[in-house]
Design a binder for these strands. Structure first.
Lengths: 234, 234
DNA sequence: GAGTGGTCTAGACCACATC
DNA sequence: ATGTGGTCTAGACCACTCT
């Protein structure tokens, strides 16, 4: 783990635990660098992470300040903004209702950037949060990325398995959000009528190698869905 | 403008114009730094921008590669990922259907981080894209951020005005997306029934000074709405 | 003017991929 | 072994804010 990530983690914890209160100015120049035994550039990298998470704001000539958002909102938005947390679905339980290997069609080949008829896992999962139906997800994973996937693995966290067991690093996720019509599959589990409006999240996940790990489409009930993000001026 | 942004811009243009084809490996070590007369760290900053835009991928030990996404998708996702472009609503026309100054209530004071009863602009706009109804937006702007706003300004791009005329720099936008019920206002313009499901985008825009420029809530018809983003592993 | 953030450089060392 | 990307440092200079 890089030093700047460790420092970001340490300061994030301090903010979350209220050691730094909203609106408070953080020390920067000497103090922080000395506290964490690092160079100015390294500290900047660390603080930039927290800026992107919306936890702090930096003002040239003025200082660095803790953002004033209420703790509940903060927790929620960090959840969706941090890839690690996004993929740490430890509080989510899944019923695997379909798990098979199929040759992919033209559409999937394009999404996964593989050849038509290459084999992929076809996985459908019903997910619960707090023991209540939460989402229905359809996932496709190229067989050559994970040669021997077991259904049991899918009950837990796929991402934990990929990162901790297979030692593959996730680089990024490209996400598209829109409204869609609920399918028969959705109606059974989510308790909505087929054809009703639901929220759809499409996700393509890239490994650090540049290979595509998965293409996933998730449906949520409108009531369950909320997505937060921060866009930064470059 | 910083050097690394200029370099990112130059390389982005090359990719968009097809000078670098998807899958192609970019030169890095000497060549790029020499081409653009910069240091390794500066080049890294430049390329990191393009990584975040999903245009390239970097693989330790292997090299830097142009991502293989089709040009249409690429254009679309850069549109939503880049703050500048997001705020460059030049193709969008607005009818200002409400424009007044009001004292803010408790809710707004919290969102805008100002005091209750501080004055704010209350702006409602109907927006068209390609001359078709697109969205209904309600915007609140603290009066002290833009003391003399004119209704005419709102027909064009507010962000262009803020950045080019007022010389205020936008730092970030915090965006939350969810489904919501269409209001009477929505039904008139968007042609949906009151109470029907619509898409809601809440946005709080920060200036580089740390001040909040605006709180905006936008409603779209479900058919009109699509949002794309990239989440990077830190 | 003092304090603070942003950028840039040169050089060092490490981690990883490919051959 | 070599090439390539990632991180870190020390030091420099500039831009901005506050007072």
């Amino acid at each position: 783990m890089a030093k700047y990530k460790d420092i970001a983690e340490a300061i994030r914890t301090k903010i979350m635990e209220g050691d730094y209160v909203p609106g408070e100015k953080l020390p920067y120049e000497y103090a922080l660098c000395q506290d964490y035994h690092c160079n100015k550039e390294t500290m900047k990298k660390a603080l930039d992470i927290l800026v992107k998470e919306g936890l702090i704001i930096r003002r040239r000539g003025a200082g660095t300040f803790v953002m004033d958002v209420d703790p509940h909102e903060r927790q929620a938005s960090i959840f969706v903004r941090s890839l690690t947390e996004r993929f740490d679905d430890v509080k989510v339980f899944s019923d695997v209702i379909e798990f098979q290997v199929i040759p992919c069609d033209d559409f999937l080949a394009k999404k996964l950037q593989i050849e038509e008829f290459d084999f992929v896992y076809h996985i459908i999962r019903n997910r619960y949060v707090d023991e209540r139906p939460y989402s229905v997800s359809i996932t496709y994973i190229p067989l050559n990325i994970i040669p021997n996937l077991r259904a049991e693995t899918l009950n837990g966290s796929l991402y934990e398995y990929v990162q901790n067991e297979l030692k593959l690093s996730i680089q990024s996720a490209h996400i598209t959000i829109k409204a869609a019509e609920a399918t028969a599959l959705d109606s059974d589990f989510l308790g909505v009528e087929e054809g009703d409006v639901c929220m759809q999240e499409e996700q393509i996940t890239y490994l650090q190698t540049g290979a595509i790990l998965e293409y996933t489409m998730i449906h949520y009930t409108c009531e369950n869905y909320k997505f937060s993000t921060v866009m930064m001026q470059q």
